[in-house]
């Protein structure tokens, strides 16, 4: 499983990477962690003629708080993000989701930006970005633009990134209110396999336990991770009792559009998407109430 021939060059800066991408034409690609790209190339399913290596570009890597956002450089290693005290404190949902992404060894190379740009329907990071309405900063030789998550994930393995754009930064909005909690549940065959379905929830409760803010998103049950606006509307204002959660998530079957594959057919994914959503809602509610750390 040897890749088809290609040229390689190492980019020294974001500008350099964008320039090389622009000059390289249609068959030029960026390589970051390579954990997805290299196997595809080994199987000759991807055949770029030029690989532009953006590993080690300092300005693309970093984790910081900027006002109400957690800002992560696209080239930040998944393992660094997982181990980051800033992430664990300010956005524990992201740390939780990251712990499901591959293995230690793949996280040591894989990047935050790489996983988002790859946009696998079952991937955890696109799900979190979609849930939190993250902003993706895309740079090309000509411009820098902000792409909202809702526009960024177009379909399975397809994003709004142009072929000459590099995903340099991701800005996750932070929820600052007390009684905010998250839930993340996924089902996979083996511990670190791709999720067959995944659900992420972040919510805020008021003093009486009523839900004042609620985001729910599903992965693996549609071409791109999707927000469940209908379910959110139905649950806002309620106290998210188990009964209510069970009743309101029933409509999920009509909202999702999963693809079957060798591991699970569409009807399985449809059913467990609902289960994951329910569990994620319960976890988020319990965390917000302080009854589940």
């Amino acid at each position: 499983m040897k890749a088809a021939p290609f040229d390689y060059r190492r980019a020294t800066s974001i500008d350099d990477a964008c320039r090389a991408l622009s000059e390289g034409g249609d068959e030029a690609r960026l390589i970051a962690g390579g954990q997805t790209l290299v196997p595809l190339m080994a199987m000759r399913l991807a055949r770029p003629t030029l690989l532009i290596d953006i590993n080690g570009i300092a300005e693309m890597s970093g984790i910081a708080i900027d006002g109400d956002h957690l800002v992560i450089g696209g080239g930040t290693r998944q393992s660094d993000a997982l181990g980051s005290e800033i992430v664990q404190r300010h956005l524990p949902l992201l740390a939780d989701a990251l712990s499901h992404v591959g293995h230690d060894q793949t996280r040591n190379r894989g990047t935050i930006g790489g996983s988002l740009a790859n946009a696998d329907p079952a991937a955890e990071l696109p799900l979190i970005a979609q849930l939190l309405e993250a902003d993706m900063i895309a740079r090309s030789v000509k411009s820098t633009r902000t792409i909202a998550a809702s526009s960024f994930f177009e379909s399975a393995m397809a994003t709004a990134l142009a072929p000459n754009e590099c995903l340099t930064e991701i800005r996750f909005p932070l929820w600052r209110k007390q009684k905010t909690g998250y839930g993340f549940h996924e089902v996979s065959i083996r511990d670190s396999d791709f999720a067959l379905a995944a659900a992420a929830v972040q919510l805020t409760l008021d003093d009486k336990g009523a839900c004042t803010r609620l985001h729910i998103a599903i992965g693996g049950a549609s071409p791109a991770p999707m927000r469940l606006g209908e379910v959110e509307s139905a649950l806002l204002g309620t106290n998210l009792e188990d009964r209510t959660l069970h009743a309101e998530t029933a409509r999920l079957a009509t909202l999702v559009d999963p693809q079957g594959d060798i591991h699970a057919d569409a009807s399985y994914r449809r059913r467990v998407a609902r289960v994951m959503t329910e569990r994620a809602l319960q976890s988020a509610r319990d965390r917000a109430m302080g009854t589940n750390p």
Partner: peptide, 22 residues
């Protein structure tokens, strides 16, 4: 293709799959 780990090495103090790097 990065699944079995038989190719693991340490790179810059971290374990990685050497079949997934050029």
């Amino acid at each position: 293709h990065g699944v079995c780990g038989a190719c693991s090495v340490i790179m810059d103090d971290k374990p990685v799959r050497s079949c997934l790097m050029y």
